[in-house]
Simulated assay, not measured.
Amino acid sequence: MRILVVGAGATGGAFGTLLQEAGRDVTYLVRPRKQEVLGRDGLRFISPTADRTHPVKTITGPDASGAFDLILITVKATAFEGVVGGIGAFVGLETSIIPILNGMAHVDRLEQLYPGQVLGGLARIVATLDGDVVRQQTALTSLTVGGLNGNAVPAEVAQELNVPGIDFSLVDDIVGALWEKWAFIAAAGIVNCLFRAPVGRIIDAGGEPRIMEAISETEAVAAAAGHPVSDAGHGQAVGLLTERGSAFTSSLYRDLSAGLPSEAEHILGDLARRARELNVATPLLDLTLIQIRAGLQG
């Protein structure tokens, strides 16, 4: 299959490298500056087990490439709208599209544009972009995919993605899995952004009850939407967000603290909107959004 990876950042660069190393036909859709760097230096991916650099195929927009068989969208939500309108030239009638982003708004948007061709995707990887180098901090590299609206994942798509280095799995309820992850990252975002500190310091300051309230809020929205968080998912969230002495901070908080574009509206704003539609009270979520939005205006 011809695979188009939209974005060559931490997630796209890592998964794209592993697919390429397994002999898959991978092309990256990137900005012109990124194309220049990759053309000159190649794509360098440093994982806990290897440091390698590969030449890669890149495009910057519609050209003679035609339709791809599989499109992986790996950009952050802040860049999503900028790329979603530009992939149309690469989508054929048999193209499968897997967005790997947090939240759910992107799934709804793609389903409107390409009904029946979108699959749910959930990646777990701890990686960052250091300049133009992809650095992976832990060995965790998993990709979970599932069909939407009763559609099955094509067998050839599953076969293409099941490669060494990627812990690949298919699930029946990918929407539930996406909501479960969303509930957690939203709770983490509330906790860190509202109290402006790592988890351990928040607990030391007496904030553990508020942490539990934040978890309850986001999980209540998921439940009202028809996707209750599993006991295992709840336990994991509580464990990570109430660990004494923990230096854990959410990526949303880190981006905001660094003055970088953030996924605040995609993760928190969209969840608050859905909470209102479902008549679920989310006072801590609402306070966090006020703080973030007021700070951005300042």
Score class of each variant (00 low, 15 high):
residue 2 R to V: 13
residue 2 R to P: 11
residue 2 R to Q: 14
residue 6 V to K: 01
residue 7 G to A: 11
residue 9 G to K: 07
residue 9 G to W: 04
residue 13 G to N: 11
residue 14 A to V: 14
residue 16 G to Y: 09
residue 19 L to G: 06
residue 19 L to R: 04
residue 21 E to Y: 00
residue 21 E to P: 00
residue 31 R to M: 08
residue 31 R to Y: 08
residue 31 R to P: 11
residue 39 G to A: 13
residue 40 R to Y: 05
residue 43 L to A: 07
residue 44 R to G: 02
residue 45 F to C: 15
residue 46 I to T: 12
residue 47 S to C: 08
residue 49 T to K: 14
residue 49 T to F: 13
residue 53 T to W: 06
residue 56 V to I: 14
residue 57 K to P: 00
residue 65 S to I: 01
residue 65 S to D: 12
residue 66 G to A: 10
residue 68 F to E: 05
residue 70 L to A: 10
residue 74 T to Y: 00
residue 74 T to Q: 00
residue 77 A to P: 03
residue 90 F to W: 12
residue 95 T to M: 13
residue 96 S to K: 13
residue 97 I to D: 03
residue 99 P to W: 09
residue 99 P to T: 05
residue 103 G to D: 04
residue 103 G to Y: 00
residue 103 G to T: 03
residue 105 A to S: 14
residue 107 V to M: 12
residue 109 R to G: 00
residue 113 L to W: 02
residue 115 P to W: 08
residue 115 P to D: 08
residue 119 L to Q: 02
residue 119 L to W: 03
residue 120 G to I: 09
residue 120 G to S: 10
residue 123 A to N: 10
residue 124 R to D: 11
residue 124 R to I: 06
residue 128 T to I: 10
residue 129 L to H: 01
residue 130 D to P: 04
residue 131 G to W: 01
residue 136 Q to P: 05
residue 139 A to G: 15
residue 140 L to Y: 12
residue 140 L to K: 12
residue 141 T to E: 09
residue 145 V to K: 05
residue 145 V to H: 09
residue 147 G to Y: 09
residue 150 G to H: 14
residue 150 G to Y: 13
residue 154 P to H: 12
residue 155 A to L: 11
residue 156 E to T: 14
residue 162 N to G: 00
residue 165 G to W: 04
residue 166 I to Y: 07
residue 168 F to R: 05
residue 176 G to W: 06
residue 177 A to C: 11
residue 181 K to W: 02
residue 183 A to I: 07
residue 186 A to F: 03
residue 188 A to R: 00
residue 188 A to N: 02
residue 197 A to K: 03
residue 198 P to Q: 03
residue 199 V to D: 09
residue 200 G to I: 06
residue 200 G to A: 09
residue 201 R to Y: 08
residue 205 A to D: 14
residue 205 A to G: 13
residue 207 G to K: 07
residue 209 P to S: 08
residue 212 M to H: 13
residue 212 M to C: 07
residue 216 S to A: 15
residue 218 T to G: 10
residue 219 E to G: 06
residue 219 E to D: 11
residue 220 A to I: 04
residue 222 A to P: 01
residue 223 A to S: 15
residue 224 A to Y: 03
residue 228 P to A: 02
residue 230 S to G: 13
residue 231 D to M: 12
residue 234 H to I: 09
residue 235 G to F: 09
residue 236 Q to K: 14
residue 237 A to T: 15
residue 238 V to W: 05
residue 239 G to F: 12
residue 241 L to Q: 08
residue 245 G to E: 06
residue 246 S to G: 10
residue 246 S to P: 11
residue 247 A to C: 01
residue 251 S to V: 00
residue 251 S to Q: 01
residue 252 L to P: 02
residue 253 Y to N: 03
residue 255 D to L: 00
residue 264 A to H: 15
residue 266 H to T: 15
residue 268 L to S: 04
residue 271 L to R: 06
residue 273 R to C: 04
residue 276 R to H: 12
residue 281 A to M: 06
residue 282 T to K: 06
residue 283 P to H: 02
residue 286 D to F: 00
residue 290 I to Y: 04
residue 292 I to V: 13
residue 293 R to V: 00
residue 298 G to V: 01
